[in-house]
Design a protein around this nucleic acid. Structure first.
Lengths: 187, 187
DNA sequence: GCTTGCATGTAAGAGGTTACATGATTCG
DNA sequence: CGAATCATGTAACCTCTTACATGCAAGC
């Protein structure tokens, strides 16, 4: 229900091609909204048909032509209306939580190895976020001028950092719990 | 890809009807895996056809008959295989993060009201989790005998508690940021 | 008499995933 | 010479959401 809106926000921050958008959904926006290029092209086409975005064909040398998209007036209106709608409760799906409860009916050791690998992924992600924060917001290279857009991007990134820190602490708790269970008589 | 597995875990913890499962997906399991009764009935039917679960018709007086489901041997095997698979990175979709970045192109005041309402929802959810923790795990009424299944349920609940606390702190950060932006000259 | 709870489903449509397809350039 | 990057798409399939449907019993 909101891929359209994520695309509108991204195009308002910076207009670009479908391909460029797909790259962003691998990176910054992708941290809180995943989408593949197939999805993006399909939705972008529909949005163009509905007049939410305007496309301009750009001929390139040595590379295929691209369509440069920017947000049209109707798109801004749609986004503004959506921003005023109530925030829907997110529908959660945590494989890991299901697996942890499933571990009661299986050998916990296999899950422990997986949790450790998963922890490493989140540890890397945290390091990546922190590096991005220094590069774009708090480091000496970052622009010092206050700007609403940048500050809002920063607070979203801080949310990601808080999430990763919380997750790492919880995964340690999970590992300790699995360890305790494994060491107990009966296992 | 894992509603089947969530159902298997839930039925292993306690066999029951499709309706009972749907209730659980409103409560405990629902905190980390959402599913509607339509989904559950459909998947349950397929799982029965594949021999993952066994159904027993139970006649009731004053109430419609129900199908009592329990996990069959094939289902246990499927669950065990899934538990040994690598944990997939979750595909995230956070409306709120999109809206925050979108607020750069709109009036922040409307979003602030929504964030406050959203904060109240999470505050209530935290209170609910904490009450459940006391009732089921740490309070004087909770069974004192150590049990792998209960400890794993507890560590998942602790994850939910940590998530809600982190979210509340972040939402305060978001509100403070929106406030700062609104008070600045130019807005 | 109305709402809530118990109990099960069908059907249409929206949304998302996976596989396949093309074609040029640049880098190792 | 092969892989990766840029750039765009189609098609089939699966999953999920939303709306509709039924029917009885208990409590207010």
């Amino acid at each position: 229900m909101a891929l359209e809106h994520a695309i509108l926000v991204s195009l308002l921050e910076k207009p670009g091609s479908g391909y460029e958008l797909a790259r962003r959904f691998d990176r910054s926006i992708g941290y809180f909204w995943t989408a593949t290029h197939q999805q993006i092209y399909r939705v972008l086409k529909r949005m163009e048909g509905d007049g939410w975005v305007a496309a301009r064909e750009v001929a390139q040398q040595g590379r295929p032509d691209k369509k440069h998209y920017s947000v049209a007036a109707a798109g801004r209106k749609v986004l503004s209306a959506w921003l005023h709608e109530p925030i829907e409760p997110e529908s959660v799906r945590h494989d890991l939580a299901v697996k942890i409860r499933g571990a009661a009916f299986d050998d916990p050791s296999a899950l422990m190895r997986e949790v450790e690998r998963y922890r490493a992924v989140h540890s890397e992600r945290l390091a990546h976020y922190l590096a991005g924060e220094i590069r774009d917001f708090t480091g000496p290279e970052a622009p010092g001028t206050p700007d609403a857009g940048r500050e809002l991007q920063h607070v979203v990134l801080r949310g990601g950092i808080a999430y990763e820190r919380m997750t790492l602490a919880w995964l340690d708790d999970v590992l300790a719990t699995l360890h305790r269970i494994r060491e107990r008589p009966g296992h």
